[in-house]
Each structure stands twice: as C-alpha cells, then as structure tokens.
Simulated assay, not measured.
Amino acid sequence: MGLTDREKYQDKIKRLAGLVRSSGKVYALTGAGCSTESGLPDFRSPGTGLWEKVDPLKYSTSEVLYNDPESFYKFGFPRFKDLTAAQPNAGHFAMAELEQLGFIKGLITQNIDGLHFKAGSKRIWEVHGHLRTSSCTGCGARRSFQLLIDKLDSGEVPPRCSCRSVLRPDIVLFGDSMSSSYFEAERALQAGCDLLLAAGTSLTVYPVAGLPRFAKQLAIINLQPTPYDREAAILINQKFSAAMVDLVRELKR
C-alpha cells in the first residue's frame, strides 16, 4: 500500500529538516504567500490575488508619485496603509525561531508588510522596503511612516515635508531602482549559500527571482507552482504557517 498524502508530506518535512541540519549556510527567501494567513492578499493567486483587483501600473508607480502625487495618495496608497495593521502568523514566528536556533543565517523578503520584523527576525533584508519610515522627495529627510499617515488623515494630500516637497513611503515602487538592501542580500548569497529556503513566493519577479542561482541547493514551500519546482531538492506544496511550524518542530527533536 502506498503512502497517504499526509505521510508523504511528513516525509518531506523530515527530509527538509535533514537538509537544513546538514547545510552550513542556510538563507530564507519569502514572498507575499507568507502573509495571506495574516489576512493580506498575495499578488497572483487566481481569484484572490491583489493584481487581479488593482492595476499596479496605474497608480502605484514612482512616475505617478512624482508627476501626480495627489492621485498616488488617493488611489495607490490606501493598499499600502492597510498593510500596517496586519499581525504576524505562526509561520513568521517559526521563521524567526529558525534564526534564533541558528539554522538560518538571514532572511530575504520581498514583502513590505514588516511582519517578519514584528515576529522577531533580526537579520532581514527587506528588498522592496518597509512601512516603518518615509522620506522627503526633495531634501531627503527621513520621517516616520506614522507622520505620513497623520498628515493624510488631517487632509494634507499629498503629505509634504517642512521643505514643502512631497513625502513618500520607503518602499520600492514600480519604476524605482532596487534598494541597497537587495544588493546586500545578493552579496551575502554570493559569499556562500548551501541552501536557499524559498517560502510563499512565486519566484517570478526579477531580480529577486534570480537569487536561487547563487544557492547550491533550493527548497520550496509554496501552494502554487513556481518556475523552479523541477530544480528544487525538496518541493512542499503546503501553506506557509503549517509547513514552517512542522519544520521547526522536526528540527527541535
């Protein structure tokens, strides 16, 4: 009699734990699929993906921000503001515990929601930025993200710095150059990565989708197919939280 789906899944978790234990330098790469269990939509899931509902190229671009900041803040910005109320799920806490236990050297995330930060992960490369700070497009002064929110709530659209230039969230918009955090993460992987654990990411958005090429081995935890599935040493089609909690439990045995 063959193995049940549950038994096959448990076997994959055990093999992944063994791979993590035997690999010297392990890094994690995460995407929007990690945050769906925190109530945030991902980008590409059929029927629920954010980009099926909102055209990101219409309002959430650097071109709109600089040329029509009022439209950016009225129509593009609200979806970013909504992210700030989300809380980490069990998978985020499990990922932080992996770092605390010494199993991963660092975490690269494409997410701007800050949930890995809230969950306690320490060495994080937030390659698309975060929603903890904002910056002036004129003088470059760094402000809190909350100040930006407060200005919008008071009716100041677009929100402006004391120098009267427009404030912007410290995230990478369509049309922006990649952040310095991305290049730091790339250098870390180039310096040595025995295993890259990609979780909750479609691995289709470049340049981040090119990072697996720096890893000796790749493990994937994702509900949807990715272009790297055939190359993965281990592929687990499971929800982020369940797989991460089970992985930590297995590693602690």
Rank of each mutant, 00 (worst) to 15 (best):
G140K: 10
G140S: 11
A141C: 03
R142F: 11
R142W: 08
R143V: 04
R143D: 05
S144V: 07
S144M: 07
S144Q: 08
F145W: 14
F145L: 08
Q146F: 04
Q146G: 00
Q146M: 06
L147G: 05
L147D: 15
L147Q: 15
L148V: 03
L148R: 04
I149V: 15
I149T: 11
D150N: 13
K151Q: 14
K151V: 03
K151L: 15
K151H: 04
K151P: 04
L152A: 07
L152P: 10
L152Q: 08
L152M: 13
L152D: 11
S154K: 14
S154E: 15
G155T: 10
G155W: 09
E156G: 08
E156W: 09
V157G: 01
P158W: 04
P158T: 02
P158Y: 02
P159K: 03
P159F: 05
P159R: 03
R160M: 05
R160P: 03
R160S: 09
C161R: 08
C161K: 06
S162M: 04
S162C: 02
S162I: 05
S162P: 01
S162G: 07
R164P: 00
R164T: 15
S165I: 00
S165F: 07
V166K: 05
L167K: 10
L167Q: 09
L167M: 14
R168M: 01
P169C: 01
D170Y: 00
D170C: 05
I171R: 03
I171V: 15
V172Y: 03
V172L: 02
V172K: 12
L173V: 07
L173A: 07
G175E: 14
G175Y: 13
D176A: 04
D176E: 09
S177N: 10
S180F: 08
S180R: 09
Y182P: 09
Y182T: 09
Y182G: 07
F183A: 06
F183H: 13
E184S: 12
E184D: 13
E184G: 00
E184M: 13
E184Q: 14
A185V: 10
A185F: 12
A185L: 11
E186N: 03
E186L: 13
E186H: 02
R187K: 15
R187T: 12
A188F: 10
A191V: 00
A191G: 15
G192Q: 07
G192F: 05
C193W: 04
C193L: 02
C193T: 10
D194A: 11
L195G: 11
L195Y: 06
L196R: 12
L197K: 13
L197C: 11
L197Y: 12
A198M: 06
A199N: 01
A199Q: 02
G200A: 11
G200E: 07
G200N: 09
T201M: 06
T201V: 08
S202F: 12
S202N: 10
L203F: 11
L203G: 09
L203S: 09
L203T: 11
L203E: 06
T204P: 03
V205R: 01
V205L: 00
Y206C: 07
Y206T: 11
P207K: 00
P207L: 00
V208W: 10
V208S: 09
V208R: 07
P212C: 02
P212E: 02
P212Y: 01
R213E: 07
R213W: 01
